[in-house]
Design a protein around this nucleic acid. Sequence first.
DNA 1: CTAAGACCTG
DNA 2: CAGGTCTTAG
Length: 599
Amino acid sequence: MDPNSSLLSGPAQYPTEPCMEGGRSLSPREQSRCSPFAWSQVPSSSLSDPDCFGDEHIQAKRARVETIVRGMFLSPTPLGPGRAPAGDGLSCPEKAQGRKRKQSLPAQQGPLEPGPAGNRGGGRKGGPRVRGQLHLLRQQVRHLQERILRAVEPRAAAQGPLTADQRNGPGPGPWGVDSDHHHCPGSIGDLSRLEKHRVSEVQYLPEGPRFLPSEAWALLESLKKELTGAISQAVDSVLQKVLVDPSGHLTQLGGRFQGPVPDGRNESSPPEGGARKDPLPLAALPRRVQPPAGAPMGSLTLAKSLDPPRYPTSPRMIPKPYQAPPADCPLAAAPAHIQEEQILGQLLGHGPGGHWRGGLPQDPSARSQPSSEVALQPWGAARLRPLASGQQQCPWPFTSTCLERLALVPPVKMEPGGLQAITDTLPFSAFSLTLGQIQEGLNPGHLKKAKLMFFFTRYPSSNLLKAYFPDVQFNRCITSQMIKWFSNFREFYYIQMEKFARQAISDGVTNPKMLVVLRNSELFRALNMHYNKGNDFEVPDCFLEIASLTLQEFFRAVSTGKDADPSWKKPIYKIISKLDSDIPEIFKSSSYPQELFRN
DNA sequence: CTAAGACCTG
DNA sequence: CAGGTCTTAG
């Protein structure tokens, strides 16, 4: 009688995650870009209330001051040339430390505080000193304006650069890059139509518009105007906010993202395992325990199908097969281009106005965009991006408009690793979109995989774990959690061993050699239930060997009274810890269990 | 000091 | 299985 038969027919119902992290990220540039244009604040001109003044001298002076001040408000910011393009001048590192930034900003603005704010208070026309300052400021403003315009013009001209910039941000995942490049020629209806034929150049050569027909030129002109206006408005608003609230809104933002994330993501994965009762083909099993390195157990003939020929050069580059049905992660879609489109929409005066990409996911065309949406539709159903993008940590480049929208974001844990996930999912969660494992780490699929790996290794090193979970972003927490898993696995394992060893002793067994764990033994059943619930994996023989050995060791120890020693298990642990087998390469696939079950 | 384990608890 | 504590090794 086949010893397996009785054991391998258990219910297979372990849920696995077809779709897990919809890890996606906006490049910091994208993020930073989302802000300035969203500002709808009107430049304050309240400084210019010429009501009470008598003589013409004063009037003239006032007029001068007024023009100066106006100039300032039309200009981005009187922060000095270095900070001029507030919109995208912030580099990622800067943004990485929200707190630092919060502190530095007011600091830099400090000296200027009496400037705009003070002026607003009342039309006090200072003495020569103030005038000199104003003059200086005015010059600075001019410089800034020039800089801004220089920066803006080419961008407004060829919108290609916009997309290119956004896309070239630090590391969207492989998919992101890939799909974007293929599907996102130019996201702006008219312009993209005009430039479609030379998209690739445009994306990487943010040059000025040299080949545009006159109508496009007109559009560009209006764009420029709108852009400059929007930028200055945005800068003004930021400036005002910062000046008014030196404590910085960033702090508040940080506060918003604390606490656990309600797991909105539909975790109920189809119990595909249910249909997976039949054991894998049990090929000839190597008799001896340790499988040679890289030689999978016989049961792992499946490995051939997906096993990469060699070590995956970059584990993270392994495309994530969690290609959940689009329905699962609809909003994973449409990163950069949508934003562009929105920005443009706002600039052109008929933007969606407010709902950030609202209504996009289900029905891209529903948005009120005239021609542009046509171009966008193909990407509306964009795809899930693997979360394994780079480590960009530029969490909060958002300005207040973004912040307001982000207020909708469910709070998330604020820990180093989670941060990435937050930034990845933030924009999408703003739609109250169901986010899955925000802490992006370990899902039940990973746990299952770990359990199966336990058949091969009881004491995996963290490096080994990293190698075998390429789709996991390891940080301290994740690592220790996984280590903890194996610790728990061992705990159960040793408890069972001790239990059965003692039972054997009480059953009158005298020869340890009699103790062998077979597939039909009760001990095996217990272990299998724990690590392989559902029986979708063929327990390797090497594990049976180890289990037998462990059982025998426990038997010896207990039967010889070693268990009197409080640390009598230690020697056993030591022995067992040296008996780890090599884990089949197939486990290195980021989606190992899933594809196993799918077959 | 940190990481990893064991051990205990809920 | 996650917490916590305690011990130990590096």
